[in-house]
């Protein structure tokens, strides 16, 4: 049984602020969803552990565009910048 405290912890791991009211509602909803998806547990017997048919598609590790080509386009979307840097709050004390 997932608790409200666990929901709050998951939200904080996912970097989402939730109010107490939201956490309360989320707890009920996530419980109902987990209760529903739990039916896959009834699938038993040998589930073959097949080697996936998927394979990695690699490319050469080379620079494909000239330096600065996208800088302005990308930075113009930034909420806060200083020159060609993204501006964030101090991380280390």
């Amino acid at each position: 049984m997932i608790t409200r405290e666990e929901i709050k912890n998951l939200a904080s791991l996912a970097r989402i602020e939730v109010t107490d009211l939201e956490a309360e509602k989320l707890t009920k909803e996530v419980l109902a969803i987990l209760d529903y998806v739990d039916q896959i547990q009834e699938v038993t017997g040998v589930i073959e552990n097949k080697v996936s048919e998927h394979r990695n598609v690699m490319r050469d590790d080379v620079v494909t565009n000239s330096s600065g080509l996208y800088t302005e386009k990308l930075l113009s979307n930034a909420p806060s910048r200083e020159g060609n840097y993204l501006k964030v709050k101090k991380i280390l004390g």
């Binding site: 998951l10 996912a14 989402i16 939201e22 989320l26 996530v30 969803i33 987990l34």
Partner: peptide, 14 residues
């Protein structure tokens, strides 16, 4: 994020 997106992110994290 809206309620459904939060719900799925939290469910997925779980």
């Amino acid at each position: 994020f809206g309620p459904e997106v939060k719900r799925r992110i939290i469910l997925g994290t779980y």
